[in-house]
Design a binder for these strands. Sequence first.
DNA 1: TATATTTTGTTGTTTTTGCAACAGAAAAAT
DNA 2: ATTTTTCTGTTGCAAAAACAACAAAATATA
Lengths: 210, 210
Amino acid sequence: MYVSFDIEQFIQDFSKSCNKVQKKSFKKNVVITSYIQKRDQLCILISGSADLVRYDLNGNKTIIDHFSKHDVFGEVFYDVTTNNELLVESKENCEVLFFSYSDMHNKCKPGCKFHEKLSEYLPELILDKVTTLNMRVELLTKRSTRDKLLGYFNLLSTKALNKTFTLPFSLTDLADYLSVDRSAMMREIKLLKDENIIKKEGKRITLLSH
Amino acid sequence: MYVSFDIEQFIQDFSKSCNKVQKKSFKKNVVITSYIQKRDQLCILISGSADLVRYDLNGNKTIIDHFSKHDVFGEVFYDVTTNNELLVESKENCEVLFFSYSDMHNKCKPGCKFHEKLSEYLPELILDKVTTLNMRVELLTKRSTRDKLLGYFNLLSTKALNKTFTLPFSLTDLADYLSVDRSAMMREIKLLKDENIIKKEGKRITLLSH
DNA sequence: TATATTTTGTTGTTTTTGCAACAGAAAAAT
DNA sequence: ATTTTTCTGTTGCAAAAACAACAAAATATA
């Protein structure tokens, strides 16, 4: 998240001042929330990391989105019309702020600092989400596993301002994120190594410019 | 776009009152804008329809997004770090409103009605965009061409509140939108017809519940 | 620290998808 | 109204990806 204000400070300052906001803690590998009904729920991840996942009828898991510290997520971003259940699963211990998007307009009380500030910041947070999603679409529309991998690696490299970077996922999860078969992806990674396009030591990848 | 205010009215009322907003007209099949530099550009499509497309090095075209009347688009939604050029191409004659996202904060003049209203409405417009993009990701993460087709058909059917609906694309464009090979998609559509899962007359599709 | 669980790496086989090429239908342009 | 262009529908073949299954390595857990 690259936003122009200090979310940490914002949460510190205001989260306790508003009685419509709930703060909850979660252990690793539990369900934080599921998108099934239209509850208008909006969440901010204060600490930890989590995935938005879908399990389809064949048991395939897809990582629809990956959230880390200060990311915004929630049902409000979805038309819950799909038949598949969407779950937010904690990957580490997490702290999460829950509130309702409609409360943004009908404020809890006049002059609630939390809601006031949040509605000021929210457009920027959501805009950031659009940017992330657009990059995701860019990746997923690549035709081959190789292009998806290279596209994603380029992204991480750009983010890190470095040809070398660390995968934020296990390779198993990376396959679910790129929506490809894991073994096929592993085969492709091996080819990329053999062709000297990348170097790989565990989760550290280096792009070798040719 | 399902938003709670009347965009048409809004454009009518305010677009002329602001000198930082430009209204331009485009013929069919021309480039409306390209996402190359960070210009903070934000656009509203007043009439017509357009696609956001990417041509990759192999000449593959991908329809990244499809815009119709009242949709919001623009460079501001992208981190233009990808190597491929993104173009917005008109599919019909179009009228487009251009302005800059940063002007949303530094208003053109105190009390400009256009910017005032726009910054009020914008979160909702952007939120709608997030929902659309999330559905797009849902589609693109489906593993097979069949699942992509059925996912998309279900979406259109839900939108139309009807088992029968009309494709907003040519079949050629649909393939580019689902990011699959056209002939492979045609083959899959034939199978879906043969298996009595769908009925198809031109661009009118009917989902046959089994 | 020992044991259980998850992740990584690999490969043969099957299935799906992409590519190429073409003819007929439909739509657009002149 | 005729010509040109785009779109649809189809197919054989090649390439890529998915599936399945397993051993070794790394992590997590008791």
